[in-house]
Amino acid sequence: MLDRMFSAEALEEALWILKNEFPLALWETFYVTVLATLFAIILGMPLGVLLVTGEKGGVRPLPAWLMQVLNVVINLLRSVPFLILMILVFPLTRLIVGTTVGTVASIVPLVIAAFPFVARLIEGSLREVNPNIIEAAQSMGASPFQIVWKVMIPESVPSLISNVTIAVTTVLGYSAMSGIIGGGGLGKIAINYGYYRYKYLVMLMAVILLILLVQVFQSLGTYLSVHSDKRIRNRKK
């Protein structure tokens, strides 16, 4: 099997696919990932903020039952396996996009899967903010909204960036799975050629590109996170 996988014909075919299909697939994977993460942040950020500010002793406590509901919903969404979630949200996808197949349609389940995760990550980042700094802001007459907007979020920027990076790489992994429901991108190539047509070399190339993409996102995220952090005293320029 291995010798067939690495034969000259296989290589030639794989290179042809690489040239003709990979650029589009790479682009699809990229924009699906970025858009899905963006929407997940738009939904997850306020939720993450509420999880921190709304608890007992937070800067703007909410009723305990409401916090309970939020937590249960987030945990539920997070515990549904992505493959099943994709199918479960078909009605919603049809409502929003008009169809359940295709690259754009795959963004909907990705957002639904990612936003509770993002909410938890943001919650984690905001909890790292020194409570004494928040108390100092309160002592200066900051409103709950000002505390969130001018203290909690700006103070946790480095941590938020590194957590958003985790979200991006996770969404990237999920997006590969959406090849199964007709979503485009590197995942589709890996499944179509590797799983259905036994062209393992093509699959291998798709996987390598996915890995490279993760590396790129991760390196960029780490760089931005470190360089945004003003707590570091002597950074080498």
């Binding site: 309160q138 200066m140 001018k150």
Partner: peptide, 29 residues
């Protein structure tokens, strides 16, 4: 609270703001 301000043992400055912006903070509020 703008007329009863407070300083602390741990200073509690905003670490991601410059000193100037830290002093501007209560004015911004």
């Amino acid at each position: 609270r703008r007329s009863i301000t407070m300083i602390f043992q741990g200073f509690n400055l905003l670490m991601q703001r410059t000193c100037l912006d830290n002093i501007c903070f209560p004015l911004e509020l």
